[in-house]
């Protein structure tokens, strides 16, 4: 049972959160401009690293805010929590090649 520090509410049990999968996969600004392979990669292809992983989480039963988190998938240690739309703290996380970078 993870103890997750919501950026707003502080540490709460994992049961109050939902995981939204890999972070930093932004919706393409012009989907029609992508070919099937590129669009398919956006929808279906995700990293599944052993070790540090950038994930989106939402404090579903609490303040209902989304945030980003770096979690170690081996040790379950939570290395960082940071806001939506911002980059992970330096040196943390695993932003793989398949990630479509946020253009904002």
């Amino acid at each position: 049972m993870l103890l997750i520090s919501c950026p707003h509410c502080g540490p709460c049990d994992e049961t109050e959160f939902h995981c939204g999968g890999e972070a930093h996969v932004a919706r393409p600004h012009d989907p029609a401009a992508l070919d099937d392979a590129a669009w398919g990669a956006f929808i279906f292809m995700r990293n599944n690293p052993k070790g540090q992983f950038n994930e989106r989480w939402v404090h579903a039963a609490g303040c209902r805010r989304w945030f980003n988190m770096v979690r170690d998938t081996v040790t379950h240690r939570i290395l960082a929590v940071y806001p939506m739309g911002s980059r992970p703290p330096a040196g943390l996380g695993h932003l793989g090649a398949a990630v479509v970078e946020d253009a904002q």
């Binding site: 509410c9 709460c12 049961t15 109050e16 039963a61 609490g62 303040c63 209902r64």
Partner: peptide, 10 residues
């Protein structure tokens, strides 16, 4: 105040 889950209810 907090929003949370008590037993099985939000």
């Amino acid at each position: 105040v907090t929003q949370t889950i008590l037993a099985r209810a939000a």
